[in-house]
Simulated scan of single mutants.
Amino acid sequence: MSHSMQQPQPPHGGPQQTPQWGGPQQDPQWGGGPSHRADPPANNSRPKTALVLGIIALIVGLIPFVFWIGGILGLIALIVGLSGRSKYGRAANPVGAILGGAGMVFAVVGAVITLQIMSDAVDELDRSVNDASSSVESDSGSLDTDGKKGKGKKGKGKGKGKGGDKGKGGGASGLAAGDTAAYDDDLKVTVSAAKAYTPSEYASGHTPGNKAYQVTVAIENAGQENFDSTLVLADARAGADGVTAEQIFDDKVGAGFDGTILPGKKSTVTYAFDAPADAKELTVEVTPGFSHDAAIWELTL
């Protein structure tokens, strides 16, 4: 009598599995295979970098003159923080990006502070320069009220005062030939009468058909300090229309003042000017320096 071996049948409705020899048997699970869960990133460096840059941006952004560094660092921190957030999701800390944005705001505040500091410094510098200029002008650059020889009325009496036009003596007609303009620092300037002058063959500044005239300018330093005559300027206008009288330069005239005039000493220079042939008057203006008012002489030709 033969016996056939029969394998046990699985429960009705269940899947049939063939046992595998040598391996572990796993019970079947309904609804699919084993579940998977994403692990947090092992190296989360971007949020950390953004955090460090954001902190530095907050500190540097409020420092005047270097605020722009904080703004750049804040922008980098914001970009790095947002990129880390997009890559790692909620596992990335958003504090770095937030600090980066705050650092940019602080940089704007630092820029405002810097501009205010610079504005205050410029205003203070302007006040200092104005005070210094006013002090120099009041102490040495104004003409003394007793600085002119008496010649009558209309500015030809006792001196050119501070209240008149710049360099015009006490009145509108200016100084006459031989008059002296005296300054508060005891500097005295005198202009002689105009005389005809013959330019040399190679003179510059003379126009054929015009007439040349020479005047002598004398500067006396009656004060207690040295006077630098290098900055002395002499200009002229000719005729009723006041056309510019060009200064003539040749081997005799045109060199101008040069060097230092010591206290108690005097320096004299001859200038020559080119005037129209029909000019009847020559107006000469002499400015001793930047800190002195100009004085004007009206000379008859």
Rank of each mutant, 00 (worst) to 15 (best):
A182R: 08
D235S: 15
P8E: 13
F273T: 13
R37N: 13
L115H: 02
G242C: 02
S45Y: 15
T190M: 04
F227Y: 13
S128L: 11
K252I: 13
D278L: 05
I98K: 11
Q20R: 09
H206N: 12
E281V: 09
A111D: 12
W68A: 11
D258S: 13
K162E: 12
A294E: 02
E201N: 00
R127P: 08
M5W: 03
T180Q: 00
I72A: 15
A182P: 06
D131L: 10
A194H: 07
N130K: 03
S83N: 12
Q9F: 03
T260M: 11
D179R: 03
I55C: 05
K87N: 08
S229D: 08
T49D: 02
G289T: 00
G259V: 00
S267I: 04
F65E: 07
P94S: 02
V95P: 10
R127M: 05
G167L: 06
F227E: 04
P263T: 06
M118Q: 14
A177K: 04
N226T: 09
P10W: 05
F273K: 11
T287N: 06
G223R: 07
N93R: 09
G254P: 02
Y213H: 09
N221V: 12
Q17M: 13
M1P: 01
E246F: 12
T268R: 05
V66K: 01
A272S: 12
P28F: 15
R237S: 07
K160F: 04
T216R: 10
G174F: 02
G239I: 07
Q20T: 13
G74D: 01
D144W: 14
E137Q: 14
K156E: 13
K168P: 00
G84M: 05
A107F: 08
V191M: 08
T300G: 09
S192F: 03
A218N: 06
P94I: 15
D241V: 01
A275E: 02
N221Q: 03
A91T: 11
G239K: 04
G141I: 07
H206R: 13
I76P: 04
S173M: 07
E137K: 12
A272R: 04
G33R: 01
A218Y: 01
D184N: 10
K188R: 15
P64N: 07
L233C: 08
E124S: 02
W30M: 02
L53K: 01
T190L: 09
A240T: 10
L115E: 07
E281R: 02
T230M: 11
Y197K: 04
G74L: 01
S4L: 14
A172P: 10
A245F: 10
N130I: 01
